Amino acid sequence: MIIIADSGSTKTDWCVVNHGKQVKRITTEGTNPFFQTEEEISQVVKDKLMPHLDGVKIDAVYFYGAGCAFPEKNEIVHNAIYRHIPVTIEVGSDLLAAARSLCGHKAGIACIMGTGSNSCYYDGKEIVNNISPLGYILGDEGSGAVLGKLLVGDCLKNQLTPELKEKFFNRFNLTPKEILDNVYKKPFPNRFLASVSPFLIENIEEPCIHRIVLNGFKNFFTRNVMQYDYKNVKVHFIGSIAYYYKEVLEEAALALQIELGTIIKSPMEGLVEFHSTL
């Protein structure tokens, strides 16, 4: 019996697996060792996870999470879990989760495209190359935050039609001043920008909207994917933006002669399969 955990800053999904079958799924608040101490993470495990595991014998835990890309941060998570589940515990990044879920034991390029974006070349065992995503200010091409940023910029600079501009302000009940406050004065501007990105998919048939998304995806491919050996392996995607904008993503890939593979919303199903074939 093993536990596979997929953790973001908002929530963590804990999946209890027995011989490749999901036995139980538990959701707790998210964890991130960049923002939480070992004690705080331990408390989440104790109060929110352990009551659901009463009487269940766990043999190993595979934890994948945001902020788990550095040994010292991984140790924080490892120790917090080990206090309550003293078994073999492996802690890895959300990018490794994406690679294992999407590629399994085969080589490929694995990409995350949600609020942020990231990518890597995976050799079937480990990540061997990673172009730094750089965050939504310098990078994160194609992500919800960057697409939202491009949308807001075009709206405020009158690059949308007057009808679309009015529709945008009404859709989110926003004024130009409120937008600027959310971006420049309030915390987590990336979350705000990502929160307005659904307007793009709702109006994707509009040429000016379609152009924002298509160019955003092309930028992701040229500035990230095309630095890997993309001509000899497939390029796979995980995340809400890739999943919901699949047709435009395929259009961008076709224009750049990039072969796409799997496009899924979340990694858990693939991770269960991966850990069942070790």
Rank of each mutant, 00 (worst) to 15 (best):
I3M: 11
I4T: 12
S9N: 14
K11W: 05
K11M: 09
K11P: 07
W14G: 03
V16F: 10
N18C: 11
V23A: 09
R25A: 12
G30H: 04
G30N: 07
N32I: 11
F34Y: 15
F34P: 00
F35C: 11
Q36H: 15
Q36N: 15
Q36A: 12
T37A: 09
E38I: 03
E38W: 11
I41F: 03
S42N: 11
V44M: 15
L49T: 06
P51F: 04
H52C: 04
D54T: 12
G55I: 05
K57P: 05
K57A: 13
A60M: 04
F63D: 12
Y64K: 05
G65T: 09
G67Q: 09
G67L: 09
F70K: 15
K73C: 03
H78M: 04
A80R: 10
I81G: 03
V87W: 12
T88M: 08
I89D: 12
I89S: 07
S93K: 03
A97G: 10
A97Y: 02
L102W: 05
L102G: 04
G104N: 06
K106A: 08
A107K: 09
I109R: 04
C111T: 01
C111G: 04
M113T: 03
T115S: 07
G116W: 04
S117T: 08
S117H: 07
N118S: 12
S119V: 02
Y121A: 02
G124P: 06
K125G: 11
K125C: 12
E126I: 06
E126D: 12
I127E: 11
N129F: 13
N130Q: 13
S132Y: 14
L134R: 13
L134K: 14
I137N: 06
E141G: 02
E141C: 07
S143W: 05
A145V: 03
K149Y: 08
L151T: 00
V152I: 14
C155G: 00
C155K: 01
L156N: 07
N158R: 10
N158S: 06
L160N: 01
K165I: 01
E166C: 00
R171N: 08
R171H: 13
F172V: 00
N173S: 14
N173D: 13
K177S: 11
D181V: 04
Y184Q: 09
P187L: 04
F188Y: 13
P189A: 05
N190P: 03
V196I: 08
S197M: 03
P198G: 04
F199H: 08
L200V: 00
E202N: 12
E205S: 15
P207T: 07
C208H: 01
H210T: 02
I212R: 01
N215G: 00
F221P: 01
F221R: 02
T222D: 07
N224T: 14
M226R: 13
Q227I: 00
Q227R: 14
V233K: 11
K234P: 02
V235H: 05
V235T: 12
H236S: 10
I238G: 10
I241K: 06
I241P: 14
I241W: 00
I241D: 06
A242M: 09
Y244H: 15
Y245T: 11
Y245R: 02
K246V: 02
E247C: 01
A252T: 00
L254Q: 14
L254G: 10
A255E: 13
A255V: 01
Q257C: 03
I258N: 05
I258L: 02
I263T: 15
P267T: 09
V272M: 10
H275A: 03
T277Q: 15
